[in-house]
Computed example of a mutant assay.
Amino acid sequence: MIINAVIIDDEVNNVDNLSILLQQYCKQVHVVAKGFNAQQGKDIILQYKPDLVFLDVQMPGEDGFELLKSLPDLYFEIIFVTAYDQYGIQAIKFSAIDYLLKPIKIHDLQDAVNKVVIKNSQKKQNLQLENLVKLLQQNEPPRIAISTTKETRFIKPDNIIFCESSNNYTTFHLNNSETIISSRPIYEYESLLGPYGFIRCHQSYIINKNHVKSWVKEDGGYLLMEDNSQIPVSRNKKENLRDLLR
C-alpha cells in the first residue's frame, strides 16, 4: 500500500532529513510535495490531497495548528514533528495519529507510519462495506454501514437524528434513544449522509434535517432536535443551514 505524504517544516535540513529517513526505512511512504511555511503547506495539501501530512508545529507566521484550523476538512492522517514536547495535548485535539520529537528516532518513525498503514487498511475495508450496502439498497430501503469496534451495523438514515464527533470517533444518536459509537471520524460520514438530508451544522455535528424540531435563537442559537437534544450551529454555517432547512 502506497501512502502519499507531504512534509511541512520551515527548516530545509529537517525536511531533507525526514525525506531520507522515509526513503530508507518507510518505503511505503511516497513524498509528493514539501512546504516550508503554513501557506505553502495549505496550498500543497489542497493540491495533492495526501493520505498523510508530516507537520512541524513551530513555523514563522502561522504555526502548524493554525494551518490545520484554516483547512475545510482534515481528511488525512497527521504526524506532528517538533523539537518541543509541550504540544501533545493540542495534537490530540486534532486527532493526530502520532507525535514525533526531533531528532527523529527511526523506530518511532516506523511505528507512526505503521499506524497510518493500519488505519488506511481499515478505511479500505469500510469502503468495501459501503459497496456491499449499495448492492443491498437495490432491493431494500437505503441503509448505511456503521463500523464499531465489535461489529458493523446497517442503519436506515431516517432512523438517525444526529451524529456527534469525538476525536476519531462518531456517535450516532437514533430515534429509538439508542446510540452507536463508530470507529470512523465524522468527516467520513458527511458525504455519505448528504444525499439523505443530513447537514454539517458544526465542526462536531451532522444533523438530519427531517428531525429538526426548531431553531432556537436565544442563548447564541441552537437546533432543537426531536429527541430534545440541543445542537450548536457554527457562525460560518448559519446562512447555508438556513437555506437548506427551508
Rank of each mutant, 00 (worst) to 15 (best):
M1R: 06
I3K: 11
A5W: 07
A5V: 10
E11T: 14
E11C: 05
V15T: 12
V15W: 10
L18G: 10
L18K: 12
S19Q: 04
Q23A: 11
Y25W: 07
Y25A: 12
C26Y: 11
C26A: 13
K27E: 08
A33N: 05
A33V: 06
F36P: 00
Q40L: 04
K42L: 08
D43H: 12
D43Y: 03
I44K: 03
I44V: 12
L46P: 00
L52R: 13
V53N: 02
F54Y: 08
L55R: 11
D56S: 04
V57A: 03
Q58E: 11
G61E: 04
E66A: 09
L68W: 01
K69M: 00
S70A: 13
D73K: 09
L74R: 05
F76Q: 04
I79P: 01
I79A: 03
Y84D: 06
Y84C: 00
D85E: 11
Q86V: 01
A91N: 00
A91R: 00
K93M: 02
F94K: 03
A96K: 01
D98V: 01
L100K: 06
K102G: 06
K102S: 07
P103Y: 12
Q110V: 09
D111T: 07
V113P: 09
N114T: 13
K119N: 14
N120T: 12
N120S: 15
S121C: 01
K123H: 15
K123G: 08
Q125W: 06
N126S: 05
L129E: 15
E130C: 00
V133K: 05
K134Q: 13
K134G: 03
Q138C: 02
E140P: 01
I146A: 07
S147A: 07
T149Q: 12
K150Y: 05
E151N: 07
T152D: 06
F154L: 12
K156C: 05
K156M: 10
D158K: 00
D158M: 02
D158N: 01
I161S: 07
E164R: 04
S165C: 03
S165M: 02
N168H: 07
N168W: 01
Y169Q: 05
T170R: 11
E178F: 00
E178L: 06
T179L: 04
I180D: 12
I181C: 13
P185T: 15
I186S: 09
I186D: 08
Y189V: 12
Y189P: 00
S191Y: 12
L192R: 15
L192A: 15
L192M: 13
G194H: 14
P195R: 14
S204P: 00
Y205I: 09
I206D: 08
I206S: 02
I207F: 09
N208Q: 10
V212T: 15
K217P: 02
E218L: 00
E218Q: 07
G220W: 05
M225I: 10
M225P: 03
E226K: 09
E226M: 01
D227R: 06
N228Y: 08
N228F: 02
S229Q: 10
S229A: 15
Q230E: 15
I231Q: 04
P232M: 10
V233E: 13
R235M: 06
K237I: 06
L241K: 05
R242P: 04
R242G: 04
R242N: 07
L245K: 12
L245R: 08
L245N: 07
R246G: 15
